[in-house]
Design a protein around this nucleic acid. Structure first.
Lengths: 189, 189
DNA sequence: CGAAGTTCGTCAACACTGTTGACTCAACGG
DNA sequence: CCGTTGAGTCAACAGTGTTGACGAACTTCG
């Protein structure tokens, strides 16, 4: 009916990646809770039971859709430490930070699942805390890096999760100046 | 069976408050998604349909369980502006901040519901941004206050939602010093 | 080439969620 | 006293994630 089902060996990988890309898009657009297994299956033109069969559970599928490295903020990290605060804010405000933003928001909203919570601290540690801590000098570099991550998370929280109108209405320049300065205070005190 | 149902006029208010207190506890303990209407009803020894009848919906019930003023951080706000950053962190790390913390975490995790998102920005604006902004001098007081709220939210995020082990393992004194200093940088630059 | 086995896909069902409608029963107001 | 109102109960609905049994096609081996 729908077009038959060519059950070849490699066809499994094809539908699997179809499910994965549909899930990636829908999770990013509507978040973990709002994107249902059945709508994902419909978007991938696939039986709902099949997505579970391929990925074990909705939560497991979700975790495979988040790629911590997708944001390419390696370049931002590589720059001079003296202006890293500003550049971090600038990056996440701009279009280049979209992927990481959506990942973060979705992870936060689903963080009542233990495995999601684990992935949240794992990916922030991988992408944020460790790279920053390795470049810091002075006392307690790892703690300061973790607090920087908390600051960035707070900004993403207010801007893209709560959608604070005050910050949203302000110009990017002011936010970069002010919040970047506050972050810098932890990087190079 | 359970003890009969005395259907008096005032009995409605009694069971209503029983539902409300059970919901308040369960939402704070397990969050919005994990606390089901049926478990709340069971905790209040009440029919599940009754909680909907009294409060309209689970979301509406949830919103009535959050009291932004419950944290009594008026005292913290009233203190000297020069040390407000430290005292804010200190308050939320301590036992006095428990209520506000749980409210915040629950709101964040349920923030994909539009009404919950509205309540989130409303309550943070009421308890945080407005009181702080009114005391700030210098440029863009409201924006700086909103960014301070973002910082505090970020710390709550990392500590009580993601439960970052690095920050949790550190001593309160260090966190108060470092993060309080970063916040202070936005209050009195 | 034919048989065995493995993989892909389908369908119906399960337990659970929030929510609604129809119903009963007691209490109050005229 | 009777009718209206409000409280409480019960069964059911549509939706969720998930599982089991089953069929059908491809791959592999004898």
């Amino acid at each position: 009916m729908t077009q038959g089902h060519t059950t070849s060996r490699a066809a499994g990988q094809a539908t699997r990646s179809a499910i994965l890309s549909a899930a990636t898009r829908l999770f990013a657009e509507h978040g973990f809770n709002q994107a249902s297994v059945r709508t994902i299956a419909a978007a991938a033109e696939v039986d709902p039971a099949l997505v579970i069969r391929h990925f074990g559970s909705k939560e497991s599928l979700f975790l495979q859709t988040i790629d911590p490295m997708g944001g390419e903020l390696g370049e931002v990290m590589a720059g001079p430490l003296e202006t890293l605060g500003r550049r971090l804010v600038e990056h996440f405000l701009g279009k280049a930070g979209t992927s990481l933003r959506q990942n973060f928001v979705a992870l936060i909203q689903a963080s009542d699942r233990p495995h999601v919570k684990d992935e949240l601290i794992r990916s922030t540690g991988l992408v944020f805390v460790q790279p920053i801590a390795s470049r810091l000098s002075g006392d307690r570099p790892e703690l300061r890096a973790a607090l920087v991550a908390a600051q960035v998370g707070g900004l993403l929280n207010s801007l893209f999760l709560a959608e604070d109108p005050v910050i949203a209405a302000a110009g990017d320049e002011d936010v970069i100046d002010l919040y970047g300065g506050a972050i810098q205070h932890l990087l190079t005190p």
